[in-house]
């Protein structure tokens, strides 16, 4: 919109900004980037556990928004639509990554009786016991969670979205979302307790 200052853009809602961007207003897009870049990077980082990957994926999400701006319809909240894009991209990326990094040791050591299937994407709680800070411990615990619990817990307890919005983002019924959140919290609690116990034993 010509003649608008930066402060004007800051007062606008997300939905108004995306509508402006649909009219080829690049400043509206820049405002959306400023508003969501940290939140998005944080969300993806908690999902992947890697800062560089999270930044790349966040940029890809904004790029998708740039290309597919005309697909947004005003009936939904912008944040819901945007998180859906981010979650889908992150899921796709993690699936590809897991497929690539899953290696069968039995292919190289046929003589041995053991048949390990190691997945490098997840950090085992025992390995994370040596982590320096509590934040890293929690992050390792989150990363080791089942993806279907992980994504709902991040959206609810880290991104602070309500149940309905999470339900829309994940395309799951509200009850399923709530149960998954509770089950995820339970798993996380157990993991963190076991980590604390092992830590105290070592000390």
């Amino acid at each position: 919109m010509p003649g608008k200052t930066e402060t004007d853009y800051k007062t606008l809602t997300d939905e108004e900004l995306i509508l402006l961007f649909q009219q080829e207003d690049v400043k509206a897009f820049n405002e959306l980037v400023n508003r969501y870049k940290d939140r998005l990077v944080n969300f993806i980082f908690r999902y992947t556990g890697n800062k560089e990957e999270s930044e790349d994926l966040a940029q890809d999400t904004f790029l998708r928004l740039y290309k597919s701006k005309h697909l947004y319809v005003e009936i939904a909240k912008f944040s819901t639509w945007f998180y859906t894009i981010a979650l889908n991209l992150t899921r796709t990326y993690m699936n590809k990554k897991n497929k690539m990094k899953t290696t069968s040791i039995s292919n190289y050591y046929d003589d041995e009786e053991k048949d390990y299937e190691l997945t490098s994407g997840y950090i085992l709680p025992d390995d994370s016991a040596n982590a320096a800070t509590e934040g890293e411990i929690i992050q390792n615990a989150i990363s080791s969670l089942n993806p279907k619990f992980r994504e709902v817990i991040i959206l609810r307890d880290i991104q602070d979205l309500d149940y309905e919005e999470i339900s829309k983002i994940t395309s799951l019924p509200l009850g399923t979302v709530k149960s998954r959140i509770n089950r995820g919290r339970e798993c996380l609690k157990e993991m963190l307790e076991s980590l604390h116990k092992s830590k105290t034993k070592k000390q």
């Binding site: 940290d38 880290i158 602070d160």
Partner: peptide, 14 residues
């Protein structure tokens, strides 16, 4: 308790 722990996590900035 677990919720507070998760919320207390450092926000990763771009």
């Amino acid at each position: 308790e677990i919720r507070e722990k998760l919320k207390s996590l450092e926000t990763i900035k771009a």
